[in-house]
Nucleic acid binder design. Sequence first.
DNA 1: ACTTTCTTGACTATGAAAGTCGACAAACTT
DNA 2: AAGTTTGTCGACTTTCATAGTCAAGAAAGT
Lengths: 159, 159
Amino acid sequence: MKVDKFLDYKSRESSAMLITKKNQYALRAIFELAKHNGKGPRKISEIAKAQAIPAKFLEVILNQLKGSGMVNSKRGFYGGYYLIQPPEKITVGHIMRFLERDVDQTDCAALVPETQCPFKGQCTFFPMWNKVKAAIFNIYDETTIKDLIDNEKANVNCK
Amino acid sequence: MKVDKFLDYKSRESSAMLITKKNQYALRAIFELAKHNGKGPRKISEIAKAQAIPAKFLEVILNQLKGSGMVNSKRGFYGGYYLIQPPEKITVGHIMRFLERDVDQTDCAALVPETQCPFKGQCTFFPMWNKVKAAIFNIYDETTIKDLIDNEKANVNCK
DNA sequence: ACTTTCTTGACTATGAAAGTCGACAAACTT
DNA sequence: AAGTTTGTCGACTTTCATAGTCAAGAAAGT
């Protein structure tokens, strides 16, 4: 069996993640499509390899992302996925919001469903959770996929 | 069997939470101790009832919080937990950081352990995750427990 | 003694997230 | 038209951190 370049992509994280694996994969996949933009469809298997994402899981994610209006796909030999919006028009916020569209919008910012909140309408911490949520999405919304590509070219990364 | 005021505190949340239950409970417990500050120890059972926290789980949390230097406890009939720092000196950031002290500090801001990152030292998204993390803790660090009590008195809450 | 309350380590349960499978449908190749 | 490649889709299984529980023991007070 061939040893994969990324040995441990399967292992789970040890601690609470700020961003789910799925959301990270979705972001990386769209980032990868953006880097390939204008060169025709990119195959799931290629994206999976380039971005160290389990291929079968990526199928599910990309298929879901078709509903967002950001990507489209084509079957057959020269098939694959491609962006239908320019990278400078897609923000991280778009991706995050789309993947969390099923979250009830009446939930508080700590993401506790209101129906399950023991302090319905009287939660002391609500304003703070809201500030946190707003601060996060402020960053997500002002970061476009093009920005991320530009950062990579400028070598603005870890370490 | 007596019906609890908070029927559904046991049910799990439906979606990914920004803040874990444990961290929320810890914050609420310290908030409760702060409201009782100067009036002697507060029993676990009282805190649990006032803040709708499973008592046995709260035992674990408060016991862990003793290591933070924020609270102390006393056994026996007039026993319970009490703050050993003034509410204006304790920030939400102190609590969050303490409860996540076991997270490896070399982990990236998306909280993916560096040893498991497929893009070791080359992650394009690192700067963004760091900005998000910084934005969150900026809010946590500037919010003291006293602030939260003041907000409650001023009725600055949900809805 | 007796009661109350915290202490401690070990234990179990849960369910969302993560990942997989396989039959199928479209697109292209020859 | 047969064969290959690639996406489609629903159902399925696995994982494991989070959440929550238990019970015996140790302080502290009456």
